[in-house]
Design a protein around this nucleic acid. Structure first.
Lengths: 225, 225
DNA sequence: CGAATTCTTGACTATTTGGTCAAATCGGAG
DNA sequence: CTCCGATTTGACCAAATAGTCAAGAATTCG
């Protein structure tokens, strides 16, 4: 799992490290993996408060005390899942190349984000829930690292605009727009399915989505002469 | 509160109507109103499972048994809040006029949705939570009424495209894009604030957002010659 | 006013849930 | 194999939570 441009996300303070953290055995590595995968699924659907340790334990096929042997508190699991997912989720933005062609860079970024939404919707939903709940855990991260990254890339986009290589558009709102549209297909997949029915699972649907989104957004920012 | 083009949303079966429903007294009307407003705030943040009756009672400044006198079960409050909000939230889509100018109709629609996101973000967040949680209550609504409405309006957009009054774009994905972008500013307001800081509360911010979104989306669908 | 009705709430119950603990089992180094 | 730490779990506890109930307070209406 790529960690993407040094974006791995130490979220919050690392209080209360697990005792056995120093010498993770094979069993530990495997079980933590299983737990985090199960927790991601559960938290992505019901958020932190709506999820129960029992649900996670059940999905991990593990007794609750055993799960709590690896992560002492529900909150520890939640933090771990968020940390693990955050970096990956934001990496594509960091990868936008200031030296590249504007339209091509945006095309690549949007395509990547759409693929991530299709491949790991749970990650997107996890963040959606966290933010809806008031971002109690990643709040600081948003106000620091994310903010810096966005302003950095906004600068790049602003330059592209001033060079006439993009239509005049607010760079930050452009980033929000791209996030909104791409993550919509993960977070609201259920609604998309309700409206489109079986189409969603047909081969080629992803390409169709990708084409439609790229058409709108790229034409929206392509300079007009 | 406008109910918008006959879209009022009877969601699910109307089982278990409250006994006193027939002759709602003044006190009943007032207290139900207070409860629903409080419940909207609470459910919008933590979803159904993550919210507690005590939280709602506290926000409504009411004892829990008193609250349960008006709505017997937590689920009843939830359903009532959803029903009340759903129609309003979707009304603007229904208001798109097939006889109007395509770009102007879309502009109006987007503007309206953005205003709603700014004025009642809780409504948007309530749906976001409901859908993330698997749409246990509005699932049927999505697959029937919403689906029909979207297909209806998609037909209008498709005609506009075939008349050359819009760039060739998948109508349903265009609708999804508009939903995504406009609701993003409600659902992810916290993230927007983290990135933009105090700007968000300055006068003119809404106009700036509106301008940016309209620029991207409308240019994205304006026919090129 | 006075009775009938509606409204309100303190006290309570059953269940769910996060988390603990001691005892049992497992796995690997010598 | 044998031992010791790592792992697993049944049984348990305290707090939180959805919902009940009977009795008291307020409102309405004749």
């Amino acid at each position: 799992m790529e960690k993407g441009a040094g974006l791995e996300a130490r979220v919050g303070d690392d209080e209360a490290r697990e005792a056995a953290d120093r010498h993770p055995t094979r069993i530990q590595a495997a079980n933590r993996e299983i737990i985090l995968a199960a927790a991601l699924e559960v938290f992505a659907v019901h958020g932190f408060r709506g999820s129960t340790v029992d649900q996670i334990a059940a999905k991990a096929d593990m007794s609750k005390p055993n799960l709590l042997y690896y992560f002492r508190r529900k909150q520890d699991i939640y933090r771990a899942v968020l940390e693990r997912t955050l970096g990956d989720w934001l990496a594509p933005l960091a990868a936008i190349d200031p030296a590249g062609d504007p339209i091509e860079e945006l095309r690549r970024y949007i395509t990547l984000k759409l693929e991530m939404s299709a491949d790991s919707p749970a990650a997107s939903r996890l963040f959606a829930n966290e933010i809806l709940a008031g971002a109690p855990v990643i709040g600081d991260f948003l106000k620091t690292r994310l903010r810096e990254l966005v302003h950095d890339k906004a600068g790049v986009i602003r330059r592209w605009v001033s060079e006439g290589r993009l239509a005049p558009v607010d760079p930050v709102h452009l980033i929000f727009t791209i996030w909104a549209v791409t993550q919509h297909y993960a977070d609201f997949d259920l609604q998309v399915r309700a409206v489109l029915g079986g189409q969603v699972d047909k081969p080629g649907f992803q390409e169709q989505t990708s084409h439609a989104v790229l058409t709108i957004v790229l034409n929206g920012v392509r300079p007009r002469d």
